[in-house]
Amino acid sequence: MLTKVFATIAVVITGGLLLYGVSDFPAFGDPHSPANAGVGNEESISQYFITQTYKDTKVPNIVTAVLADYRGYDTMFETVVIFAAGIAIFAILRVTGNEAEKKSIKPPLDSSINGDHQRIIVGTTCRIVIPVVQMFALYVVAHGHHSPGGGFQGGVILGASFILVAMSEDLNAALRRFSEKTYLTLACVGILIYAGFGLMCQFLERNFLDYGILQKVLFTDGPEMARSHSMLGVEVGVAFTVTAIMFAIYANLSSRGVLKNGL
């Protein structure tokens, strides 16, 4: 009880200070706020991105260009964060051998009670939906630098399609299609693709992840197109890692690390 009183006091004080601070904010939607237009005569970084991105990279989706090129380091270690989270979950939950036998969850759905007709509805729907979801995911990844999308978004959709298999049938069915070995390899491959693009730039005597020089390898018209193509490659790497880790998180959490039966 006392905790709740103190918590309420602390939260009200914090919230009150923030609400007081809000009155100094620029109005919502103001195009000339410091974040949008910079302070004084100085151009803000976002204005630079809006005006220069297409010239620098030939990528119309500014968000992807900033993500994969201007802030390439950030995104690479972002991918590493996801990878690390997947490995942490693997380390915390995964059990094998005798312990796995003990902890294995019995299949929760007894088909005699549940009725086969329900499975038919769910199964048929998922068989129709999953290929469409996967194609859409590949589109989101491959077209991410021209339309809304990118590696993270497409990777999550692709991972969700495998989670849908696991939920509509069971985890074993999903693991037959996307085994533990596959997804752990895929997670590593994704990061290696990303880091590989960076290292390739270094071998061509530029900075890490400075894609412009890759025109020598990719045989493009100029450094801009090289940047555009490299962004696509990097996004594919991100998508691999995200797909694998999303499914790994679900598989480990839903089966308590046994990777059998599951929810």
């Binding site: 195009p31 974040a35 976002s46 809006i50 119309p60 989706n61 500014i62 021209h146």
Partner: peptide
Amino acid sequence: LGVKDGSTIPIL
């Protein structure tokens, strides 16, 4: 914070 009145999505 990134909203501007009358602006469109950041895809050219």
